[in-house]
Design a protein around this nucleic acid. Structure first.
Lengths: 157, 157
DNA sequence: CCAATCAGGACTACCCCAGTCCGGATAATC
DNA sequence: GATTATCCGGACTGGGGTAGTCCTGATTGG
């Protein structure tokens, strides 16, 4: 199904949220604003910090801050940061000649054009594109909602 | 990691193998030729038959046959047949408004451009492209191999 | 010195895929 | 008509990976 992890989903949400504010933001704060569980937000942010997508400020009054503008972050970077290198098959990703059946595996290099195509497709779309995306004419209803909603309604908070 | 299932891998191998022969081929035969376990080959072929990528002939002297030429089969079709519809997020695939947190989920439609990009990328590459792919200058060594190797060395058997 | 926050890892529960197997239906052959 | 080879469809099970939580330590401001 070619699915990417839910964490990547969260990462996009968190990053877009970060872009909306000026100073640093704490993970509890982001968790409250997005509705994503606090530990999970922390996990995502740590991962993103490891990939230099966000900067962290430790200690009291600390928090996270976006390093680049959304328009400078291709979605491929986010996926790579959270889900690891973008590659469709296990054969391709690094472990050269580690294929279980070297002689049998006819894939060696054969998925490369596919991987390249996907990679370039994902590199051409930035978070800004996703932020300003279609966004159907649907509005957030606060009815039957108990949690602190309002994740990012068109980034204009 | 954006990985697709190993079954898709197998499907490509099986389809390329099918393209090399004229008449129908049995799943045991393909299993022997490709080194893929027999039940798995059968499973893949059944799936491919359900998506009209291959035709099946039942009964004795039966088997499978390719419906279109490799050049007419985009890899997207194979992925869709084996792994289901191509969509990156769970939100997108069908279950409309089934998102666990409707108000919270800012993804609704936002991954669409990404999905579209990937879909078109995968539609532009056919099995023929993958068959005639880079194919590094490496040859199958029969040394230290016990299983029936020779999956498809450049489709010229 | 204390409180708030990030850092980094370990840990667990759950879900989905991979692979197998079985009984049934179909069709060619003898 | 019986037999045999093959596909059909589903159920079943085990393993791997993700999601999510938690804990201990390091850093920094009040």
């Amino acid at each position: 199904m070619l699915r990417l992890s839910k964490l990547t989903d969260y990462a996009v949400v968190v990053l877009v949220r970060l872009s909306g504010m000026e100073g640093v933001q704490t993970s509890p704060g982001i968790a409250a604003a997005t509705g994503i569980p606090e530990p999970t937000v922390a996990k995502v942010l740590k991962t993103l910090a490891a990939s230099d997508l966000v900067s962290s400020q430790r200690g009291a009054k600390g928090g996270y801050r976006l390093n680049r503008k959304l328009s400078a972050i291709p979605i491929a970077d986010v996926i790579a940061a959270v889900d690891g290198p973008i590659a469709l098959t296990a054969c391709v990703e690094g472990s050269t000649s580690e294929c279980e059946s070297q002689g049998l595996c006819p894939m060696r290099g054969r998925w490369d054009p596919v991987n390249d195509a996907i990679h370039s497709a994902l590199s051409s779309i930035t978070l800004a594109d996703m932020q300003a995306a279609p966004l159907p004419a649907f509005r957030i209803h606060s009815s039957s909602m108990t949690r602190p909603q309002a994740v990012l309604q068109t980034a204009a908070e």
